[in-house]
């Protein structure tokens, strides 16, 4: 049977992609962020997941406002990294976990989640950067399932709905008949705001509370509306919705394998967590 072996959550600031390309991992500005990853890579060596199911938000690469789904899932054989206008170098294509994708997609629709199904899909920095942080040589040893959440146009799917989507993904995985070890990742956040007179807003206290809740009270953040989240975490801090989808996939308790919060990377409170089911 398939099983979620861990949840890895991390920020996906575009500038990280440029730092990787320029080899700045040991640079004093970057080191406190990149140092969060060797313990996670040791865990990957030990656990060796077969598939990454990645919960992220597209920023105008695969989707534009002409067709902007609230939730979408990839069912493609491969996913491409492309020029997204942010100056981030592209990465090798990602092999899709087709059987699992279709299984999860069918299961979610039967479970009342109206997913947009993507048989062709490109993936932007919110997907590619976390993958490159996990496997810096970019020779992907896993197949992938992209799950995309709208954080572009408000109203956003509610935090409660995102958590429930995660629960439904967890149920789908539990019913997948092949022995498959799945690492679920949730990308984006934590607090940051790029636009407006309050640009540069960071809320460390909220971030720490949210990270703690991922372990001790995973539905804590579902009390907040999308605008509550903007107020507390900044306009782009709302990307923590992807963390909630990811956290929902493990129904029981988790333990922290590794956790890191560093402020700032670019305008962002850069946070990373690796959680394991207990």
């Amino acid at each position: 049977m398939a099983k979620v072996v861990g949840i890895m959550t991390t920020s996906h600031v575009p500038l990280i992609g440029k730092a990787i390309h320029l080899g700045l991992q040991q640079d004093p500005y970057w080191k406190p962020f990149f140092d969060g990853f060797p313990p996670i890579r040791e865990w990957l060596e030990k656990v060796k997941p077969d598939v990454v199911l990645a919960c992220y938000n597209d920023h105008g690469l695969n989707f534009f406002l002409d067709k902007q789904p609230t939730f979408a899932i990839g069912t493609a054989a491969t996913y491409t990294s492309e020029d997204e206008g942010w100056g981030i170098p592209t990465m090798p294509e990602f092999p899709g976990a087709e059987d699992l994708s279709w299984h999860v997609r069918d299961s979610l629709v039967r479970d009342d989640f109206d997913m947009v199904t993507c048989q062709e899909m490109s993936v932007d920095h919110a997907f590619t950067i976390p993958m490159a942080l996990l496997w810096p040589d970019q020779k992907w040893p896993v197949k992938v399932v992209p799950v995309c959440v709208n954080t572009v146009i408000f109203p956003l799917p509610s935090a409660r709905r995102c958590y429930k989507l995660g629960e439904a993904i967890g149920r789908a995985i539990a019913n997948f008949p092949e022995d498959t070890k799945i690492l679920v990742i949730g990308t984006g956040g934590l607090s940051h705001q790029l636009e407006g007179e309050r640009a540069g807003f960071i809320n460390k206290e909220f971030d720490l509370q949210f990270m703690d809740s991922m372990v001790t009270d995973p539905q804590w953040a579902t009390q907040f509306s999308d605008l509550d989240l903007v107020e507390q975490t900044g306009n782009e801090g709302v990307e923590l919705l992807n963390w909630l989808v990811a956290r929902g996939t493990i129904p029981g308790p988790v333990r922290v394998v590794h956790s890191n919060l560093h402020i700032p990377i670019s305008n962002t409170a850069a946070a990373t967590m690796l959680l394991e089911p207990v």
Binding site: P14, L15, H59, G60, L65, E84, G85, W86, G87, V152, I153, L194, E195, G196, E197, A199, G200, N235, E236, S266, N267
Partner: peptide, 24 residues
């Protein structure tokens, strides 16, 4: 929308998010 304006700022004009923050 900021995710779209970011393409102009970063990819076309070569500004980073601290430039954009300072401008605002």
């Amino acid at each position: 929308g900021v995710y779209f304006l970011g393409k102009l700022a970063s990819g076309v004009l070569g500004l980073d998010m601290q430039d954009i923050g300072a401008l605002q």
